[in-house]
Design a protein around this nucleic acid. Structure first.
Lengths: 254, 254
DNA sequence: TGATTGACGATTGGCGACAATCGGCAATAA
DNA sequence: TTATTGCCGATTGTCGCCAATCGTCAATCA
């Protein structure tokens, strides 16, 4: 009796499941950037012990998605121009390395096919012109290149950057992608990788990421300026601690 | 009464202190690479609750220094040729970015002086010829370049890589540095950064890191081969679970 | 004799309760 | 009125204990 077609269950500790669910909520924007949350509140909503939730929150803090304000609460990452700069410069360095590694090993079994497949999905999404699909296919192509590098630490590091970038994009008035430009930007990178040219692949990848990253960061900076201008025209409001209201981020005294 | 010269106390939760102490023990080799440890044992030694130690261990797992084998124990990171390759390729990408960023902003107040200072300390250590001092001054120069980039995520990522590299170096029969070569390798990098040439600084930095990283990885591979040869000549020993003995790494069934 | 099952010791997983810390607000003093 | 102090509610920090899981070994079966 070789196999009964019974699927293998993947057991995941509840701590890890809680971290996964919270991560998804943050990245999806259900818990907005800058939001204050507390262990008690989340534990209540999830039906778990506070200690379990606490472990999950610490996990997300390590990933940069949350910041702990000791004895006060936790805040979802908030984003500045400096954060944007850090994210896109680091992402560009990581993706350059991946493009080089994949180009150098593109003759390995199946790699070229997988890359072509991911690129075709991007082209397909751009033809349909649906913005969310384009964005996902764009991310998908990048992820494929990263995965094909066969470099666990690189993959893990990239995932951390990606989720922060997703929070970033979602919390801003994200720019709509131009489908024609998206394809045009990625085509030479894919071609260089498929041609097995690490230097060219790395350089093109880096250029693409720096250009797009700067553009998005500039856009956010403009948004921040507009928000700051608008804030100067409103009357400062009283702040008090409501019994059940959630809090915006606040400074720890440390 | 402006100031009483009373130093500001920096309070650190005991969880964090435990993580810091354990990290230091692992990086220093007091807990060897590949070693199995348990929460009960560590909690007993540290005089803390197991839950507190557990939080610290999870922190270090996130940093890649420990691996959790569920319901069985924790193991200190062990190192393969793949790990070595991952570490040096990623380190090289990170340091290239830092060299570029510092070169582009080398005219900022104090940066050139700090870089020169770190380099002089390396030269000084090499003149004295004391291996541990050379290694520390070498790390110090790299750390200075990273810190001067003014990029928090980069600094944090580099710290994680660095500590893994330290475990790596300590667990192998580390190569002794040749003082003259160490200076010669770093001089052109520092010069390019001070000249404000990001492209040249990045390229030289990358080349240096890839060369040194490959050399160390090859060295470790040779060690692994020697160990594997030696292992084939010994009689496989019985394995049993002693009540108090610590365990070597074992495979999870997942 | 080899394969299977069940029990048990050793471990981590998760819980709720007590302890420590922080910030806001009211009371008090100058 | 402003500055200081003390109290309290709300939060995280830490603890010890029960629950769940895993691997090993002995007993049983074919």
């Amino acid at each position: 009796m070789a196999s009964l077609s019974i699927p293998r269950l993947v057991k995941t500790p509840i701590e890890t499941q809680a971290a996964t669910a919270l991560r998804a909520s943050i990245v999806a924007g259900d818990i907005p950037a800058g939001q204050r949350i507390t262990e008690i509140e989340i534990a209540g909503q999830m039906g778990l012990s506070r200690a379990t939730v606490r472990a999950a929150l610490h996990q997300l803090a390590r990933e940069g998605l949350l910041t702990l304000v000791p004895y006060t609460g936790w805040t979802v990452m908030s984003l500045s121009a400096q954060d944007a700069w850090e994210l896109y410069t680091l992402r560009s360095a990581i993706e350059r390395l991946a493009a080089q590694l994949v180009a150098a090993a593109i003759n390995d079994a199946g790699k070229a096919d997988r890359l072509r497949e991911a690129y075709e999905q991007l082209v397909s999404a751009c033809k349909r012109g649906h913005a969310a699909r384009i964005a996902e296919a764009d991310f998908g192509l990048h992820q494929t290149i990263i995965a094909l590098a066969g470099h666990r630490r690189l993959t893990e590091q990239y995932a951390l950057l990606e989720q922060q970038i997703r929070v970033y994009i979602r919390s801003s008035d994200a720019l709509l992608p131009n489908p024609g430009m998206v394809v045009a930007q990625h085509k030479p990178i894919v071609a260089a990788i498929l041609a097995g040219d690490p230097d060219k692949a790395g350089a093109l990848s880096e250029q693409h990421n720096l250009t797009e990253g700067r553009r998005l960061a500039d856009h956010l900076l403009a948004l921040e300026r507009r928000a700051a201008d608008a804030r100067q025209e409103t009357v400062p409001s009283q702040r008090s601690r409501g019994a059940t209201s959630t809090r915006q981020t606040r400074r720890a005294r440390a």
